[in-house]
Nucleic acid binder design. Structure first.
Lengths: 234, 234
DNA sequence: TATATTACTGACTGTTCAGTCATTTACGCA
DNA sequence: TGCGTAAATGACTGAACAGTCAGTAATATA
């Protein structure tokens, strides 16, 4: 009836929605192809606008990239920090909670592509790299290190260098993410993330070596193993 | 005296040496800037030739990239496999040996940039990614998994899923490499690789939880910790 | 020393793509 | 209903760069 029906219009004004849509499209493509190989024409097309419109909202490709990173991760790290503040009870429980919460909200999500992107591009964009390091990585590090230190103080964990331990616990988690976004497509044995994380938690708490009475064996006690030629455990 | 002295020549013929020099230059620049951001003019310049010469030896940028990857890693994985064949004695010793040999010959070397490169680019070059996966990653995986299975059979390690354990042991190693080639420059606390690897070996063998008599504590036994809500240890 | 061969050069081409801007279209408001 | 303005367009520009090739200079051979 109405000759000016919505369908007739070549486009509509949607000032409010554009930035978020453009950022979502950009995240998809950056993750899929990497920064350099992503064309802004494609980003615009996926967001349903023309390239000119993109430039109304972002002044350059680099600014768009920054915005994507910023908006993707700020809320997440804050959530982790809240978990730490509010937690009561044993440290290993908190650790477990953080590991799986992180996987559900980042790893198993589109956002999981951001760390991969940052690892790939941070040398080409040191400024963004520094931003990501300060706002995400270092805060994540501090978070996990606090958990460990709490556990060591209470005697729940044996005492060791918390800085290195923190890195060794986070490494397999981040590595899983990177793997998913790079070589997973080659891998015939697809990794079950829950099982991987479960076994990770198990290994770092129990170690590879059998507990004293678990079964007979010819192995040396753990202490000796850890004191090889370069033994440096302070 | 001699008017045709070597210094007077604009260039000399060095057919044999060119490919290796070009590949070395390319490795440097690919690692430093990534694949897309590396210009072939710069590669040629660093190798002391013109771009035309580069094309005498490599038919395209992608072919050059492949050649760099291929020549860098083939010898290394073979060395690891030889270690496994020849080894006598406890598995943890072999593991230790592999970890540090790998670090010395790859991690602490220009070659250490290759894994970073491959993680960054393998989605853009699936063919090269597949090649790298088949020739390097899967062989590395098989190697470490054999070590673990040997140790489990002898009772030196407690039995668990060797595929996942293998990944969890390799992850912090590769992660260290990736870190070095990306965020390390942001990090005020530079990681001491030996110490990191040492603590890694220690943690996976001994775990975080204190041994029975180490000290009093309020922690739960390790078995309980590993059997949380999603317990899936087969 | 003269000639043939080929490693090497570097200016050139064609393409791709970030970023621009004159024009067109939607829409709030009088 | 028409007018002003702001949103959106898409053809265009200029720079960067992979890949080419006609020409040049080093070296082998005679």
């Amino acid at each position: 009836m109405n000759p000016q029906h919505k369908q007739d219009r070549r486009w509509t004004r949607r000032k409010e929605a554009r930035p978020a849509e453009l950022m979502a499209a950009a995240l998809d493509l950056f993750v899929e192809r990497g920064y350099a190989a992503t064309r802004l024409d494609d980003v615009a097309a996926r967001a349903g606008v023309s390239k000119g419109t993109l430039y109304l909202y972002f002044s350059s490709k680099e600014e768009l990239f920054k915005a994507v990173i910023r908006s993707g991760i700020v809320p997440l790290i804050e959530r982790g920090e809240r978990l730490l503040e509010e937690h009561q009870g044993p440290a290993h429980e908190l650790m477990r909670q953080i590991v799986f919460a992180w996987w559900e909200s980042v790893g198993d999500t589109k956002l999981g592509g951001i760390p991969k992107l940052m690892f790939s591009e941070c040398r080409n964009f040191p400024e963004i790299g520094k931003f990501y390091y300060d706002e995400v990585i270092s805060r994540g590090h501090r978070l996990m290190q606090s958990v460990l230190e709490t556990g060591m103080k209470s005697g729940e964990f044996r005492s060791m260098d918390a800085n290195y331990a923190m890195r060794l616990i986070l490494a397999p988690m981040v590595y899983l993410l990177l793997w998913r976004h790079s070589f997973d497509f080659c891998d015939s044995k697809h990794i079950d993330a829950d099982r991987y994380l479960e076994q990770h938690l198990d290994m770092i708490t129990s170690g590879l070596v059998p507990r004293s009475h678990d079964q007979n064996n010819s192995s040396m006690p753990a202490k000796v193993i850890s004191m090889g030629k370069k033994g440096r455990i302070r």
